[in-house]
Design a protein around this nucleic acid. Structure first.
Lengths: 242, 242
DNA sequence: TCTGGGAAGATGTCTATACATGTCTCGGCA
DNA sequence: TGCCGAGACATGTATAGACATCTTCCCAGA
């Protein structure tokens, strides 16, 4: 009988650790077959449900791949990825000790263009909520926020008072988001953007494009245009090694 | 007896859906107490282990908070922050089905400037490893990777053959990184950058600045300059971090 | 030779039961 | 009055057993 590690904690954690040790040490290499649940039960002297839970959690962590009826295999190593956290601009500015202000430039309901309909996956044909807000740090404009909101999910978006509640807080309450897609690009400010952000024409800007889903329908389409005076950044511990 | 949803799939998924429905509809609000496992067993007519699994998974997804001995509660809404995942450029290009190539422009050891020393928190006074690599998608240059490596941690960095192993793989093996700091900015390409990326002078570029730590010492300082033809992006479900 | 069927073995789910562990309350005792 | 301990109740873990579902493989029969 093999020996489980002697660390403290529940049994299934020890089983996880036992298996992870074999993966990390290279004893069980990529794509190699891991002992079956039944074999692990015999080897480790624990019940099948305990082994099953350990294997299931290692699978959802991406360390193993399981195929019903076939077996359990060591997952290929994760690709190199790091995470960057994008924080609410109001709190980011305030935590730097700067003054924050937002001007509502526009709040309306509009018929979506063909391009916008495509961004919504053609999930709605009705008018969508539309807002443009200019965010300031110490009275200097730093970001243009433009949102398009699916009016099936938040019908009264264009009737809110966004000086009292932020657009995010309102959306959070009306539509629980379940998925996010984000793209960051560098663009050259057009004339209007440069004017709003008090930049010279042709200055580079950061464009953060974000779509959110509620279930399988697109809830919002957003464009955040950051002044070149501003940087997106974070301090983040990488998750990838467990 | 309450009714479980009639969707297909395992029982514990239906229990999860039943609970999520009550949270999303607002029937069970923030911080409100959720029925205990025992109550859910009576209400839904399933075993406690099945209820427990549903509650456990909803907890690890961030929808619930459980306190042993006390109860289960609806989790407060997530703070406004989303994560963007930055993937290894080689695998990102390859998963798009494009051809990937990297040219090593430079590999040397150099005495750090005062500015570079500051980036290293003055943790080293010796020469640092320095590399510049140009990454191509379908033979079109898309990113300049420039790395400075603390030679206390990876002394032979400038003697590696980075056509055989990627800089990341080498660093991953020699220095386990424990923390990452990243900043994204939009910059205007200077003349040399524009030439290397085959852009017009003055084109906007994405600059990703990354520092990594091993313990409390700075391991690497990196600058990734992305062509304006390229976007940083990801698809990422929010929340779910354990 | 080809094909269908069944056995074997793998993972996936569900239940009933038991015990462990943490929290809170309430009542009795000093 | 204050404290502390028992009990109620919550979640957390572990087990044995049963059945479901899926894949693979081999063999019997056409």
């Amino acid at each position: 009988m093999a020996n489980l590690p002697e660390t403290a904690g529940p049994l299934y954690e020890k089983v996880k650790e036992y298996i992870l040790d074999h993966i990390i040490s290279g004893a069980w290499g990529k794509d190699q077959r891991v002992p079956s649940e039944h074999e692990l039960v015999s080897m480790l002297g624990v019940s099948r449900m305990t082994v099953h839970r350990a294997l299931r959690e290692l699978t959802s962590d991406g360390h193993l791949v399981r195929i019903q009826g076939v077996g359990t295999f060591v997952a290929p190593p994760k690709p190199y990825s790091t995470l960057i956290e994008i924080v609410d601009i109001a709190s980011e500015i305030r935590t730097r000790g700067a003054r924050y202000r937002a001007d509502i430039l526009l709040l309306e309901s509009l018929q979506p263009s063909q391009e916008l309909l495509a961004a919504f996956d053609f999930a709605t044909r009705k008018a969508v909520g539309h807002s443009m807000i200019l965010h300031h740090e110490n009275d200097m404009p730093v970001m243009i926020e433009e949102r398009f909101v699916n009016s099936d999910l938040a019908p009264d978006y264009d009737k809110q008072d966004f000086s009292a509640i932020t657009t995010y807080d309102f959306l959070q309450k009306s539509t629980p988001l379940t998925e996010v897609e984000q793209v960051i690009a560098a663009i050259t400010a057009d004339e209007e953007t440069a004017r709003m952000l008090a930049l010279e024409a042709g200055a580079p800007c950061l464009l953060l494009h974000r779509r959110t889903w509620t279930g399988s329908t697109v809830a919002t389409v957003n464009r955040f245009t950051y002044s070149s005076r501003y940087t997106l950044g974070s301090r983040y511990a990488p998750g990838s090694f467990r």
